[in-house]
């Protein structure tokens, strides 16, 4: 990690732009429609859903925990939203209800991990499983689209705020708030201190349990906000809605962290943009989802390897003679290859 840390931020941004340009150039040469205006809008809408989920996950990763429940929680959120709309409660209540469900599930995760000290991976898989089960409760698993057309939920996909597509505007606003919390406030410092070294954080007077709890709660709530956008774009609530969130969200957070040296809001947004650029390209080329998922998973593994200081240290030991080139940090070399 040391050579990474020495790299000025400009070089990292440059590396990201180059990487994005390479991805774009490859897909553009394969499918000419890739860089068309319509497709870029589609890409960014897709990114909004993945980005919101990845932003929530960023908090959990910053405190060095794992959340594997949010796809299940998001499904429950989607079905809650669908049921509320179908029961004519209106869009506002629907979205509020979905996010509240996500928040509640996140709190359960947080209490289990922070206060009961259960292992995070097992505990969150379990809550995720419970959430999926509960999501069948509303309609026995049938997808819900009653009332959707009348209720105005579809506007969430089609409207424009501040000249941006609504989902993109929502992502931008959420990212700005998340960045302010995580990078501009005392709470962000506490999140990072908790993740970096829990003992020293406790000794600095930080209530680490509360921050771990908060991270899980934020993750749950944002995954349900993300699924709201997905429901709005597809026009129906599905019990499997959340299943496509897990891998891209982790890949985005870790890819971003590999590029920028640590998990952060800009890093996650950059990672999501890269992931969406790839996923969208595969969709456009009509690559079946199971192959594109496999490719995304490969990217995830490479990103984790690049993020891990042990791996970059091992790579450095492999070539001790050559001085590190300033532009190519070990992690980038990994990501490209």
């Amino acid at each position: 990690m040391k050579p990474l840390a020495k790299n000025p931020i400009i070089l990292r941004i440059l590396a990201f732009v180059v990487l994005l340009a390479v991805v774009a150039a490859i897909f553009q040469s394969l499918t000419p429609a890739y860089l068309s205006g319509n497709n870029i809008h589609a890409l960014l809408r897709h990114m909004a859903v993945q980005g919101l989920a990845a932003l929530g996950l960023t908090f959990v990763i910053v405190v060095r925990q794992f959340d594997l429940s949010f796809p299940g929680v998001a499904s429950l959120g989607a079905m809650t939203l669908g049921w509320l709309i179908a029961s004519k409660f209106g869009v506002g209540v629907g979205i509020g209800g979905a996010v509240a469900v996500g928040l509640a599930c996140g709190l359960v995760n947080g209490i289990a991990v922070a206060y009961l000290r259960l292992p995070d991976i097992v505990a969150t898989i379990a809550t995720g499983g419970v959430a999926v089960g509960l999501s069948y409760f509303y309609s026995n698993g049938a997808s819900i689209s009653k009332n959707f057309f009348m209720s105005g939920i579809l506007d969430l996909n089609d409207a424009k705020y501040f000249g941006l597509d609504a989902p993109v505007a929502i992502l931008a606003l959420t990212a700005a708030i998340a960045a302010l919390v995580l990078h501009g406030s005392r709470f962000g410092r506490a999140f990072y201190a908790t993740g970096e070294n829990r003992v020293s954080a406790v000794y600095s007077g930080i209530r680490v349990k509360a921050y771990v709890l908060a991270a899980f709660a934020i993750c749950g709530a944002l995954s349900c906000l993300a699924i709201t956008l997905l429901v709005a774009s597809s026009g129906a609530a599905n019990v499997t809605a959340g299943s496509q969130l897990l891998m891209p969200a982790y890949a985005a957070v870790y890819l971003g962290a590999a590029l920028f040296g640590a998990a952060s809001v800009p890093a996650t947004i950059a990672g999501t943009l890269l992931m969406s650029a790839m996923l969208n390209g595969f969709t456009l080329m009509a690559v079946p989802y199971f192959y594109s998922d496999a490719i995304v998973s490969t990217v995830l593994i490479v990103a984790i390897a690049a993020f891990d200081p042990k791996v970059s240290a091992a790579l450095k030991r492999l070539r001790p003679a050559r001085p590190a080139k300033p532009l190519r940090s070990p992690s980038l070399r990994e990501v490209r290859s």
Partner: peptide, 21 residues
């Protein structure tokens, strides 16, 4: 190393984290 500092963070982070208020 294990009790006093957040080792990968910079000096400002480490001093201010003692009194975020």
């Amino acid at each position: 190393r294990t009790e006093g500092l957040a080792m990968t963070q910079d000096v400002v982070f480490n001093t201010t984290v003692a009194h975020l208020g």
